[in-house]
C-alpha cells in the first residue's frame, strides 16, 4: 500500500527533477557552448600552439619560392602552381566576410557566393601575376603570436633583394581543424583593412550589385601580365 501510494509520488518528483535538471543542464550547456564559440579559452602552451601555423606558413613560403626559382616552368605554369598553393592556404570565405564586415549581411546568399568566387579570382590574378619579379627573395620567419580568440599571427621579414627589410605578417585562423590564412599585413598595411575601406566606399555609393559588377570587370580585364610585358618592352 505504502509502496503503491509512494511510488507515483516518487515518480512524479523524479520526473519533475529530471525535467528541471535536464533543463538546467541544457541551459548551462547552451551558455557554455555559446561562450566557447564566442571566445575560446587561450591555449595553455602558446609556444606549442603556434607551431602548426608557423610550419604551415614556412612550408608554403618555401614551396612558393621553389616554384618561382624553377627555371623550367613557363610564366603561366608558375602562376598556376602558385595559385594552387594559395587556394589551399587562404580561407577566402572568411576573408570575404572580414572584408565586407557588416555589409556581408546586406548581400543575399547568391550574391555572397558570387562575391567570394570573384574576390578569390581577383586576388589570385592580381597578386599572382606580380610574383614574377620576385625570383631571388628569401623570407625569414621571425616569430609568432597568439591573438585574442586563438588566431595566430606569424611574423616574417624579407631577407634580401630589393625589398629587404620589409615586414610581412600572416594572420591565421583555425576552422574545422585546419589552419588557414585570413589576412596578410605588409609593412603594417593589412589587406583586409584596405579592401574593407575600398569596398565600403563602393558599397555606400553604389550598392552591392555595383561592387560585384566591378569585380567581374576587373577580372575580365586583359591579363595584367601581358600589359606589363609590353610596357617593359617599350621602356627598356
Amino acid at each position: 500500500m505504502m509502496n503503491r501510494s509512494r511510488s507515483p509520488r516518487w515518480e512524479r518528483v523524479g520526473f519533475q527533477g529530471l525535467v528541471l535538471w535536464t533543463g538546467a543542464l541544457l541551459v548551462l550547456w547552451c551558455q557554455v557552448g555559446v561562450a566557447l564559440a564566442a571566445r575560446p579559452a587561450p591555449p595553455e602552451d602558446p609556444e606549442a600552439f603556434v607551431v602548426a601555423p608557423t610550419q604551415l606558413v614556412a612550408e608554403t613560403l618555401e614551396q612558393i619560392i621553389a616554384v618561382l626559382q624553377n627555371p623550367t616552368l613557363s610564366a603561366e605554369a608558375r602562376r598556376q602552381e602558385i595559385e594552387a598553393l594559395a587556394f589551399a592556404v587562404f580561407d577566402f570565405k572568411t576573408m570575404s566576410k572580414l572584408v565586407l564586415a557588416r555589409n556581408w549581411k546586406k548581400l543575399d546568399p547568391a550574391e555572397r557566393e558570387e562575391f567570394v568566387a570573384q574576390f578569390k579570382i581577383y586576388l589570385s590574378r592580381n597578386y599572382g601575376s606580380r610574383l614574377d619579379r620576385f625570383r631571388q627573395t628569401e623570407v625569414v620567419i621571425s616569430g609568432a603570436r597568439v591573438e585574442p580568440r586563438n588566431d595566430v599571427t606569424v611574423f616574417s621579414t624579407v631577407a634580401d633583394g630589393e625589398y629587404a627589410g620589409v615586414q610581412l605578417d600572416y594572420r591565421l585562423r583555425q576552422r574545422d581543424g585546419r589552419w588557414r590564412v585570413i589576412d596578410v599585413v605588409i609593412e603594417g598595411i593589412s589587406l583586409v583593412a584596405n579592401f574593407r575601406s575600398q569596398f565600403r566606399e563602393v558599397l555606400s555609393r553604389k550598392g552591392p550589385e555595383a561592387l560585384i559588377r566591378q569585380l567581374y570587370k576587373k577580372n575580365a580585364q586583359p591579363d595584367s601580365e601581358s600589359s606589363d610585358a609590353t610596357s617593359t618592352e617599350t621602356d627598356s
Binding site: 592580381n126 606580380r130 615586414q167 609593412e187 603594417g188 598595411i189 593589412s190 583593412a193 584596405n194 579592401f195 575601406s197 575600398q198 569596398f199 566606399e201 563602393v202 561592387l211 566591378q214 576587373k218 580585364q221 595584367s224 606589363d228 610596357s231
Partner: peptide, 25 residues
Amino acid sequence: DENRRESFDYYVFLRDAYLQNRRAR
C-alpha cells in the same frame, strides 16, 4: 600602374595604405 588599375577606389587605397603604414612605423 598596377595599384591604379587594380584598386577599386585609388584614393581610399592610398589613404588607408598611408595611414596604416605610418601607424605601424
